[in-house]
Design a protein around this nucleic acid. Structure first.
Lengths: 208, 208
DNA sequence: CGTGTATTCGTACGGCGTACGGTACTAGTA
DNA sequence: TACTAGTACCGTACGCCGTACGAATACACG
């Protein structure tokens, strides 16, 4: 709060004229961030799959630009989502509202997409800190492999050891492993698999 | 740190003989928590799908019992996963190591499952605070609907409005909506859809 | 017994969020 | 013109926090 006030060129306590507490300020900022990921209305009319894909990638891109809000999110009692979060929710509803399934299923699909986007973004953030995911994740995996290399002989991680050995047998180098492991476009591919799974469920229900 | 020391009946600074900083203590605790979700080795030999399912549900159950570690996780530079996290990784590798796909695909499957489990757990935690998910999420959704009810007439959330109206037209009450929206077993159903999506991808690759 | 090492911890420092009470300015009223 | 009400601002101080520093104590071993 002191720093924010300093950068605004005002006294610290002046902030509290507009905001009840630091938490409330955080809520406002978080919701403001959620506002910039809203998707063009036309995207929502191209069927559930393109619509959900557009919403998910926009959300992911937004978290990529503002990863710190993931860490700033703390559970607070009786906190209610802000208008921009609700608008995001409303757009997700738009994507599934015409599906031929019952309401709970529609809402679970919406929640499922958000779960994935949040999880991917959080883990990418934890692994990557300030860098872009595509650079950071291999570095993180490198650290993992480096660390595990010490323990590999002890047999503590037998399955990773199998992979390392298979890679050696194929003439590959250990250093290449991390880069092979997590590659660009991982978010999009994971999303497509999730959408595939949803599609399977939709067909199954329609079959009945 | 002061409270931990007090509960241990020692001076605050005595902690720093065993631990370099509060962050390091957090890392140790987090990794200790990751240790209790390890899965029986026999589970890993029942095929990739049961194995991944067992790992994911064990992880989810663990996060349900210790949700605060999700909030405690902060991106720290040059942090390396602890032995228990690596053991979890190794178990995931065991589940996919025999699949008939290339290595990067195997690793993406592993990461995908973790992304979902993390995302679900984080969002459930944010929505639910201390309560069980099954109780908390409806309460959260109730707050959402209550809040949105105010705005529904303004047309700010047209798609949610459509759902509310459809529910009224079917003779349902507004109060029933939150409970209809998120129901028990949501994690397991979402996981099955994710596994379905992975299965689709495996078949596609095998077909080539 | 002395001596080095492991363990404990009291004090103090700089940072934080913010409660409290006050000051300055503006707009409206008479 | 003087008075008032409300808005905006902020200096000071309190009680937290993590932890740097250095001293005190306990213990193991020659």
């Amino acid at each position: 709060m002191r720093r924010v006030a300093r950068e605004l060129g005002i006294g610290t306590m002046s902030l509290y004229h507009y905001v009840r507490s630091k938490d409330e300020l955080m809520d406002l900022v978080s919701d403001a961030v959620m506002g910039v990921q809203l998707v063009d209305e036309a995207e929502l009319r191209r069927g559930w799959r393109p619509a959900l894909r557009a919403i998910a990638t926009a959300t992911r891109r937004n978290f990529e630009h503002h990863p710190w809000i993931l860490a700033a999110m703390q559970p607070r009692p009786r906190q209610v989502p802000g208008p921009n979060s609700l608008r995001h929710f409303d757009q997700s509803v738009a994507a599934v509202v015409d599906l031929d399934v019952d309401l709970p299923t529609k809402m679970e699909i919406v929640a499922l997409i958000d779960d994935y986007v949040f999880g991917f973004s959080l883990r990418a953030y934890l692994a990557g800190l300030e860098q872009r995911v595509e650079e950071a994740e291999p570095r993180w995996m490198q650290a993992v492999f480096d660390y595990m290399a010490i323990e590999l002989e002890t047999g503590a991680y037998p399955n990773v050891a199998r992979i390392v050995e298979a890679n050696r047998a194929a003439g590959g180098k250990d250093e290449d492993l991390p880069a092979m492991v997590l590659q660009e476009g991982r978010f999009e591919r994971g999303l497509e698999r999730l959408l595939d799974g949803i599609e399977v469920e939709l067909k199954r229900r329609r079959g009945r």
